[in-house]
Amino acid sequence: MSVIDRIELYLVRTPLPAPHRPSWIPGTVREHVSMCVVRFITDDGIEGWSGFPASGRERAGLGDPLAALFLGLDVDDQEALQERILIMAAGGSFNWWIEPAFWDIRAKAAGVPLYRLLGGDTSRIPLYASGGEIKDTGARREEAERRFSEGFGTMKIRVHDFDESVDIEHISDIALHMQGRMRISVDVNQAFRLTTNGDAPLWSLDRAKRFVDAAADVGLAWVEEPLYGDWHNAMAELTSYSRVPVAGSELHLMGYAELERMISMRCYNIYQPDAMWVGGVGHVMKVAGLCRERGVRFTPHCWSNGFGFIVNAHVFAASGFAGEELFEYPIAEPGWVPEARDMIFTQPFVHRDGWFDLPEAPGLGFEIDQDVLSRYGRCYFKASRREQHWMPEALSYWV
């Protein structure tokens, strides 16, 4: 039996080459990839890593509960792991993102990449290009032409205007411009509202119906998150009504239990849970199995950071859907590019002609660049089964 012997927490802020304006957080300009990173070390010396977006010091107090709940835990006790993450949630802090670090350890101990440990045999997965910013029609045409020239056959755009006619004009323009060459999908970011820095529209069911009608008329591949995340009945009504596939489910924090209910209700045609938010690798693999059983589609969301990308890529490769669906490849030049997103790793995760080859190294398949971690990160908490230390001076890095 291998148990967690040590824990380390880091705050990391690596620079972007240009500002990034994520469509789902109106008014926000990102100049860094900001993360809370965890390192678990077992009593036999195996490391497991994971990292989650951090807008500031909101996880500064995470060390004490991690130490109390996970030091001494058997790394193979998945039920206990999930239960303890839920104990943290009962205290007001959802942290499914730490669960993949345990899978990193398990796969390393087995000497195989995670997707193989999960039962997958597909190491090469097809991608769609996923843009993350609002653009005018001219800039979006240029973006689509670049992605097409790089080998992508499908691109996801974003629309997010208070005037619904503007959104419909944008999907129509790009779909017609790329007609016969590239399929277009769209994410309208309605499932949750991040309005700290700017307001955002909240769509009604009627507006969503008008939009999916327009999307079907121009042949979009799917429409993503057209309604607020808790409106399950309205989602099911919209999906039943729509002539274009409706997708979503990336941030349903209760994981499998909630998604099982949503799948039974036929809330979506395509389910996109992200293992960093929605129950970890364990829950999302169960969701994939249920999607297969119920005859609905599955492909994970992965717009967060390099940890989120590679964790969900392993899940997708093992899900059984890699021969039928496309996996998300986030790119929003010039700011959000894989080389910058993945600076914490010794090698970025980049596509080749619209495909991604999963790493064959054991575990999640990356190595942390210790020079980058030292330059752009600060360890603010360390604990072992014998002692623990807070480094509050490290938190001044985030002032």
Rank of each mutant, 00 (worst) to 15 (best):
I368P: 04
A383D: 08
D187L: 13
V75T: 10
A90S: 09
A332K: 10
T154K: 00
E31P: 00
W203G: 12
N269S: 15
G131I: 02
G61F: 03
I105D: 03
L11N: 08
F192Q: 11
W222I: 09
S396P: 00
V188C: 14
I85K: 09
R30N: 06
D121T: 13
R243A: 14
A332I: 01
E58T: 02
G180A: 03
Y329K: 05
K135W: 15
M1N: 05
G51H: 03
V37R: 01
C291L: 09
I174N: 02
E169Q: 12
R181C: 04
G119K: 03
F40E: 13
A139R: 12
I134W: 01
V188M: 14
D357V: 03
Q388K: 15
N233P: 02
L290D: 04
E83G: 02
E393Q: 13
L227N: 11
S240P: 07
D199P: 07
R294W: 04
R386G: 00
I331Y: 02
G153I: 07
G92L: 02
G131M: 03
P201G: 10
T154C: 04
Q179L: 04
T137D: 10
A110W: 05
I171C: 10
W355T: 02
F211D: 01
G279W: 07
Y10G: 09
I125H: 06
E324T: 03
A247K: 08
H314Y: 10
Q179I: 00
H232L: 15
Q347Y: 06
W398H: 03
M276C: 08
P201K: 11
G306T: 06
M276G: 05
G280V: 06
F102Y: 08
A208W: 09
I168H: 06
A361Y: 08
G248M: 09
D230F: 15
W203H: 14
R297D: 07
L364F: 10
E169C: 01
A101M: 08
I7M: 09
Y329M: 10
E99A: 08
A215H: 11
L259V: 11
V244K: 08
M262Q: 15
A191S: 15
I98N: 10
M254N: 08
A221W: 11
K156R: 11
V311N: 01
I105C: 05
A80L: 15
V399M: 07
W103R: 04
R386M: 02
G365K: 14
H32A: 02
P113L: 10
A107G: 07
L176E: 12
A247E: 00
Y376D: 11
M254V: 01
L118M: 11
G45C: 06
E58H: 09
G153V: 09
I331M: 05
Q272D: 00
F102W: 03
G56L: 01
V218I: 09
D5G: 07
I85S: 05
T299M: 04
W222P: 03
G180V: 01
A60R: 06
I174R: 00
T239C: 11
R21N: 04
S2H: 14
E328Y: 05
Q190V: 05
Y376H: 15
D44L: 02
K135Q: 13
W398P: 01
I174L: 13
T299R: 04
